[in-house]
Nucleic acid binder design. Structure first.
Lengths: 107, 107
DNA sequence: ATTACAAATCGTAATATTGCGATATATAAA
DNA sequence: TTTATATATCGCAATATTACGATTTGTAAT
C-alpha cells in the first residue's frame, strides 16, 4: 500500500491534508519564511540559505507552487519568487477555522 | 535518500513541520474532527466512521498522540480519547503566528 | 547565433508512509 | 481465573517522499 485512501474522506479534509503536507517539511517552512523576509521577493539563494542542492530546492518550490502559494517572475536572468498573498490569507483562514472549530467543541 | 535533513533547519522549523505532518493525512484530520464533535470524548467507532481498518486507525491515533494532542482513558472496556485542549491551543498559536508573521512581511 | 548562467526536469537510490491481516496486550465482566 | 471485547503492536507489501547528480530548458547579454 502506501497510498492514501482519499475517497473515504470529504473534499475539505483532503484539501486540509494536502496543504498541511506542504508545510510538513522544514525546508518548505524555511523557504516560505525566507521569501517573506526579503523586501523584494528574492529567488534562488535558497540553495545557499538552506544548504540543500539546487535540484532539491527546485523540487520543494514546485510543491509549494502546487497549492498556489507562489508567484514567480523573471528579473534579469533570475527567477524571482514571492508568496501569493491572497492565497496565503485563504489558507490562513482555512487553518484558523479548523483550529477554532475543533477547539470550541472539544471536551 | 528519502530522509529529511533536519539538521539544516532550526528547532522551530522542525517542530512546525513535525506538527504539520500529523495534519497531512485526511484520516487524521477526520479523526480530530470526529473526536471533537462527540460530547463525551468517544473512542473507536472511528473504524466504522472512516472505513479504515482497526490497525490503521490505531496507527493514526498514535501519530496524533506523538505530538501530545490526545488524552486517553478507559471507560469500561472502551478506551476513550479526547483532545488535549491546552496542547491544541498551543499548536493553534504556533500556526497562527506562523501565518501572521509571513502574511505581514510578504511582498 | 553564441555564450553564460539560473532554474526545471529526469533518473535513481534511500528512506518514510500507508494500510492491513495476524497477533499480542489490556481491561471488565462472569 | 476464564472469557469477551477493545486497542496496540508486528510484519509485510505497495506506494510516496526526499535528495542529488546530470541534463535540459529558459532568459539575458554579447
Amino acid at each position: 500500500m502506501g497510498v492514501t485512501k482519499s475517497e473515504l474522506f470529504n473534499p475539505q479534509q483532503n484539501e486540509m491534508a494536502q496543504i498541511a503536507k506542504v508545510l510538513a517539511h522544514p525546508a518548505r517552512v524555511a523557504i516560505l519564511q525566507y521569501i517573506s523576509r526579503q523586501d523584494a521577493c528574492i529567488c534562488g539563494d535558497l540553495v545557499e540559505e538552506t544548504g540543500l542542492a539546487q535540484a532539491t530546492i527546485s523540487q520543494h518550490l514546485s510543491e509549494i507552487k502546487k497549492i498556489g502559494l507562489l508567484k514567480g517572475n523573471f528579473q534579469g536572468k533570475n527567477l524571482c519568487y514571492c508568496i501569493d498573498k491572497e492565497r496565503w490569507e485563504a489558507i490562513h483562514d482555512l487553518f484558523e477555522s479548523f483550529f477554532t472549530r475543533i477547539g470550541q467543541q472539544c471536551c
